[in-house]
């Protein structure tokens, strides 16, 4: 049970009670080394694509085309990285991925902030100021997260045009805000549902109003769920491709769309090493979040799938 405290702490956040140990299960019968061998094999399986991307992004193209994809670089070079960042042909222009990385940042930050704020307020109303039909309203908000977004592409394209936001980063911010409301409401609603309503009542009797109660009582204890919600929204919005591909122009494309263009559009010589470097760049922000706050990331994933 040496690793028990850390490992179980992670899953405790999902609502599963930590299990007390002391059992042997399969352990007594299955040789331990077979167990570890299988687990290690799967580690290699999951790490393989990351290794392929990383090692091939650091070697000259000739080494890849000569059949050396699985080898470590013979000659280490960072040229593919600088090419992917600042000089590769993305679509029609040779700008590298840098401007699109900036687009993604400009898209993700306001969209995450707005949808998180909206989710916090919604969760507060839906749990502490319940009204007839509150659960139905919540269910309708939540269903909006699961619809195939193909269903909204056509009218949204027109609407963005009417709003003057077509093909712009603010347009993408708006779209992600709108379709992020459901999940952020889910997180805050479930979190605030466990928050003692008596405290809210007591504050109300003392004369505190709607916003003061939110600001002084609920918000100070909302840190953990805010982190979960922000990570979830950040990952989802950063990784989005469909909206980016549908509603952006050449100069407002997010990173995922630009990466796809880089990989698909290169006519003539395919610069695999540059593609891999670009892929890692597109993956770095979310991988960074996962590395730093993996615990919250897992909790967010689970809350998105288990229990309302």
């Amino acid at each position: 049970m040496a690793t028990a405290p850390t490992s179980e702490a992670i899953l405790a956040g999902t609502g599963a009670p930590a299990r007390s140990g002391g059992r042997s299960r399969l352990a007594a019968h299955l040789p331990r080394f077979v167990l570890y061998a299988v687990l290690t094999l799967f580690c290699l399986y999951y790490l393989l694509p990351l290794y392929v991307m990383l090692s091939n992004s650091l070697k000259p193209l000739s080494e890849i085309t000569a059949g050396g994809m699985m080898a470590l670089p013979g000659e280490w070079t960072t040229a593919p990285w600088s090419a992917a960042w600042s000089s590769a042909q993305v679509g029609v222009e040779a700008t590298g991925l840098r401007p699109y990385f900036v687009n993604s940042i400009l898209m993700v930050v306001p969209a995450v902030a707005l949808s998180t704020i909206a989710g916090a307020l919604n969760g507060y109303v839906l749990t502490k100021w319940r009204f007839r039909g509150a659960t139905l309203v919540f269910g309708l908000l939540l269903f909006g997260c699961f619809i195939p977004f193909q269903m909204v592409l056509i009218p949204m394209a027109r609407m963005l045009g009417l709003m003057g936001l077509a093909g712009s980063v603010p347009g993408l911010v708006f779209v992600h805000f709108v379709y992020g409301i459901g999940f952020s409401t889910l997180y805050f609603r479930n979190y605030y549902a466990a928050f003692p309503t008596e405290l809210v009542r007591a504050a109300q009797i003392d004369g505190a109003g709607f916003f003061r109660i939110f600001w002084r009582i609920l918000l100070p204890s909302s840190g953990p769920i805010a982190v979960v919600c922000i990570i979830w929204q950040f990952t989802n919005i950063w990784n989005d491709f469909l909206f980016g591909a549908s509603f952006s122009d050449f100069d407002s494309q997010p990173m995922t769309v630009a990466l796809n263009n880089l990989v698909q559009s290169s006519t003539g010589v395919k610069e695999y090493n540059v593609h891999f470097a670009g892929a890692i760049m597109a993956a770095l922000p979310t991988l960074f979040v996962y590395a730093v706050a993996g615990r919250f990331f897992v909790r967010g994933l689970m809350a998105g799938s288990v229990k309302g």
Partner: peptide
Amino acid sequence: YPMALSFIVTGVAWKWF
């Protein structure tokens, strides 16, 4: 960790592999 990646990144990695 693959769950944190974009499907585009996954697609590029597997496409060439």
